[in-house]
Computed example of a mutant assay.
Amino acid sequence: MTVLAVPAAAGGSLRQRLIDDMTLRRFSRATQRNYLRDVGRLATFLRRSPDTATDDDLRRFQIAQQEVGLGVPTMNAIVSALRFFFVHTVNRPDLARRLVRLQHPRALPDVLSADEVGRLLDATVCLKHLAALSVAYGAGLRVAEVAALRIGDIDSTRMILRIERGKGGRDRNAMLSADLLDLLRRWWSEGHRQGVLQRQGWLFPGQDWARPISTRQLHRVVVEAARAAGIPKRVGPHTLRHSFATHLLEDGVDIRVIQVLLGHSRLDTTALYAKVATRTVRAVTSPLDRLALFHRQGAAPD
Rank of each mutant, 00 (worst) to 15 (best):
V284T: 14
R266W: 03
A283E: 14
V260K: 13
V87W: 00
R59S: 10
A210F: 09
R106Q: 14
I163H: 08
L46Y: 09
Q65S: 15
V125L: 11
S134F: 05
L180A: 02
R15V: 02
L18Y: 03
S177C: 13
D110W: 05
D21V: 10
L183W: 00
V135G: 09
R41A: 00
L58S: 13
R266F: 01
Q65F: 10
D289N: 13
L249T: 08
R220M: 09
G168T: 03
Q62F: 04
G11P: 08
D171S: 11
R142C: 01
L293N: 08
L267Q: 15
T44G: 12
L197R: 13
A10S: 15
A64K: 15
D115G: 12
A96Q: 09
E250F: 12
G69E: 10
D182E: 15
R199D: 07
T2H: 14
Q259Y: 13
M1P: 14
T285D: 11
G263A: 07
A107C: 05
E190N: 10
L121G: 08
L108Y: 10
A274Y: 02
A10D: 11
T215F: 00
G166S: 01
G169Q: 03
L267D: 14
L272S: 10
D38M: 04
A5P: 08
A225Q: 08
R119D: 03
L14G: 08
G140N: 07
T280C: 07
R25N: 08
D254K: 05
L261Q: 11
R279N: 07
F45H: 14
D51P: 05
L149W: 00
L291Y: 03
R185I: 06
T31P: 07
R266C: 01
G195T: 09
N91K: 14
D56P: 10
T23C: 10
E224N: 10
A53S: 15
